[in-house]
Design a protein around this nucleic acid. Structure first.
Lengths: 132, 132
DNA sequence: CAGGATCCCCCAAGATACTG
DNA sequence: CAGTATCTTGGGGGATCCTG
């Protein structure tokens, strides 16, 4: 993460402004967790069962990172002592838009991607295309 | 990457359909390279100087992966023998939308994120918030 | 110039076990 | 149940050198 602001004339590439957001999506779970918080505060247990396949440790790490970036807020439950809730901040909520755009794209074009993968002929994404 | 299709009632979280797109953004350079190909075919050298900060090796790897997923197409230049060009496929072009959404968000809310980072009081995103 | 081959490092992410 | 502490690993990504 190198959030240097450049004076690049080409405003999108070397410009780290955009990187900042891409980095937020560069974690396996960030987007998923944000999405899981979509409609209201959730406790860690709830999140884990909603999401599925994420360990307690990794969930905590993810939440910490989101918190660090101001997208998520951690609150101790009013009454109970060791009840915890996480919720989106106002900033976090604005990020749902882009996430949705990405998710929606997956639903529309997921098939094509998978088709391309199979058509590739290799299991390894890095090996140069076989024939042709 | 576990592109399993689930029968999840909750269509967004455990459902790997969305993951498929998120994974495409989970690389440091995928989005940047796609964006750099935005307005037409480009040769590797051009890409490198346009982007800045990406090594030849990593660029190749990135392009391979994008090619593998059907987002990018590799073509030998018509006349010259060892001239190469990469271009977006039709599928790849459809992905510019979501990418743009993410990039645009960065320009709008990047300040807030950086402010949050500084307000965090720690340099380490994973350490629990100091006071409070 | 394109891009393969090596070597190295770092860290996200998983598994497991333990505390308040 | 929330969270930390360890240990391990896979692979992305950087640097460097080498070839057609």
């Amino acid at each position: 993460m190198w959030y240097v602001t450049t004076d690049a004339t080409d405003a999108f590439l070397a410009d780290c402004r955009a990187r900042l957001a891409f980095d937020l999506l560069s974690n396996t779970w960030n987007a998923v967790v944000l999405w899981a918080l979509r409609d209201g505060p959730r406790r860690p247990v709830e999140l884990r069962e909603r999401i599925g396949g994420i360990s307690s440790k990794v969930l905590t790490e993810t939440l910490r990172r989101l918190q660090f970036n101001g997208l998520v807020d951690r609150q101790l439950h009013p009454d109970a002592p060791s009840r915890v809730e996480y919720r989106l901040t106002a900033l976090g909520r604005t990020f749902l838009g882009p996430i949705d755009a990405v998710g929606a794209w997956a639903f529309e074009h997921g098939d094509e991607v998978m088709a391309a993968q199979e058509a590739a002929g290799t299991a390894d994404p890095l090996s140069p295309p076989p024939t042709r």
